[in-house]
């Protein structure tokens, strides 16, 4: 089980969290103007990176907050966590 460093609560077991998928996806705006390729990219296409990956987590059974994390998908180690709205750390 992962030990996830929530930026609000500190390290907590994975069972307290829900995974929110890839981070920094931007919904096409205005929606009516976006073509099919743009919608496909937003809805379905994912980087699925092997390496350091930006993803969303929600501390659903804790503080309830969404936040972002950089995790290395080859080791499952968390490289960094940052709050919603903050830029991705280098």
């Amino acid at each position: 089980m992962l030990l996830i460093p929530c930026p609000y609560c500190g390290e907590r077991p994975e069972l307290e969290f829900t995974h929110g998928g890839e981070a920094h996806l931007i919904r096409p705006n205005p929606p009516a103007r976006a073509d099919d390729e743009t919608w496909t990219a937003f809805l379905y296409m994912r980087e699925n990176l092997k390496g350091v990956y930006a993803e969303r987590w929600r501390h659903a059974r804790g503080c309830g907050q969404f936040f972002n994390a950089l995790r290395d998908t080859t080791t499952d180690h968390f490289v960094a966590v940052y709050k919603r709205g903050e830029p991705r750390p280098p």
Binding site: M1, E14, H19, T73, D76
Partner: peptide
């Protein structure tokens, strides 16, 4: 598991 990974292992829970 709930998260994407390439580690070929998952959580015991």
């Amino acid at each position: 598991d709930a998260y994407t990974s390439y580690t070929q292992r998952g959580g015991l829970h």
